[in-house]
């Protein structure tokens, strides 16, 4: 049995409803679709029991066709196996719980979701925004598919010329 197959069996043993949601793409690449309601349980189980101790990055996706946001938690084990956990959030109420309690480095990655897609992340520590500038207009989320750079073109301030 390959390490990827063992991971699949261990995970679906604990969460039988995930059995058909686990895709072994190739050696060292596993993708799992996780229902948003059970995400934290699955996430914690992967970290604590399956050795997935490295958080690589979060990717936020604007899934325009299904009207959802996708969030991918790209994680890895020290042996090189990458586990990508995916959740979908409804666009009208995109709320996510922070994982900074477990991975302090997630802070910047979660702030990117907040700034660039407008996803609400609860439990983030106090701190400056990232990566957009402080004066960025409200409600402008650059990585949403319907957003165009012209939407955020700042009106020139009075008395100041940028020419």
């Amino acid at each position: 049995m390959t390490p990827e197959e063992k991971f699949r069996d261990d995970l679906s043993g604990r969460f039988p409803e995930l059995a058909d949601k686990i895709v072994l793409q190739r050696a060292r690449r596993i993708w799992v679709d996780v229902p948003a309601g059970r995400f934290r349980e699955v996430f914690d189980f992967c970290v604590e029991s399956l050795g997935v101790t490295i958080l690589l990055i979060l990717t936020g996706l604007d899934e325009a066709e299904s009207g959802t946001f996708g969030v991918l938690y790209h994680m890895a084990r020290p042996d090189g196996v990458v586990v990508n956990l995916r959740v979908h959030l409804p666009k009208d109420k995109p709320v996510l719980r922070s994982v900074t309690d477990r991975f302090p480095s997630a802070e910047a990655y979660e702030r990117e979701l907040v700034d660039l897609l407008g996803i609400v992340v609860t439990g983030l520590p106090e701190g400056p925004r990232y990566p957009l500038p402080d004066g960025w207009p409200e409600g402008q989320y650059p990585l949403r598919k319907d957003w165009k750079p012209a939407d955020a073109a700042p009106a020139p301030e009075e008395g100041k010329s940028h020419a």
């Binding site: 690449r29 996706l61 790209h74 990458v82 990655y109």
Partner: peptide, 30 residues
């Protein structure tokens, strides 16, 4: 696909999602 690369400063992570066109749907870089 998710791609990892050992850059001089450490691990570089790229995620690419393709949608069948000549332009990517999403590119994520760490």
């Amino acid at each position: 696909a998710l791609s990892r690369y050992e850059a001089p400063r450490g691990e570089d992570v790229h995620y690419v999602k393709a949608n069948g066109t000549e332009k990517p749907e999403r590119v994520k870089v760490r």
